[in-house]
């Protein structure tokens, strides 16, 4: 259940920001989660409520912006979009791909009171 650890990471960031920027309530936590990252957005949402319960983020809504996976195809010498790591290049069908994007797991912004 590393989603729990990720949610604890999110709460840790929210709490630090609350101290730095003096807010007392969080309405929305906006995340950026890459298609090739280590977590499924649904699992994260499921855990977030539980982990947030006794923190400043209690009751906050989790908004997740999913970013596409991108890779450099070494055979085509161009950037392509992939949904999974084991997918072939959509252009040539080969597997000589170097992942270049879509691994992000970030807190983008907070809507606070």
């Amino acid at each position: 259940m590393h989603e729990m650890a990720l949610c604890e990471g999110i709460i840790g960031i929210v709490e630090e920001e609350a101290r730095k920027r003096a807010f007392a309530k969080v309405n929305v936590v906006c995340l950026e989660i890459g298609a090739l990252s280590h977590v499924a957005p649904e699992a994260l949402k499921f855990c977030f409520e539980a982990v947030a319960a006794r923190t400043i983020a209690r009751g906050a809504r989790l908004e997740i912006v999913e970013t596409p996976g991108t890779a450099w195809c070494m055979d085509c010498s161009r950037s392509v979009e992939i949904r999974q790591r084991y997918e072939p290049c959509p252009s040539c069908g080969g597997y000589h791909l170097q992942v270049t994007g879509g691994e992000e797991m970030r807190v983008r912004e907070l809507e606070v009171d």
């Binding site: 999110i10 960031i13 920027r21 807010f23 992000e104 970030r106 807190v107 912004e109």
Partner: peptide
Amino acid sequence: IIQVERDI
């Protein structure tokens, strides 16, 4: 809105 942009 507060911009955060931090890795989880």
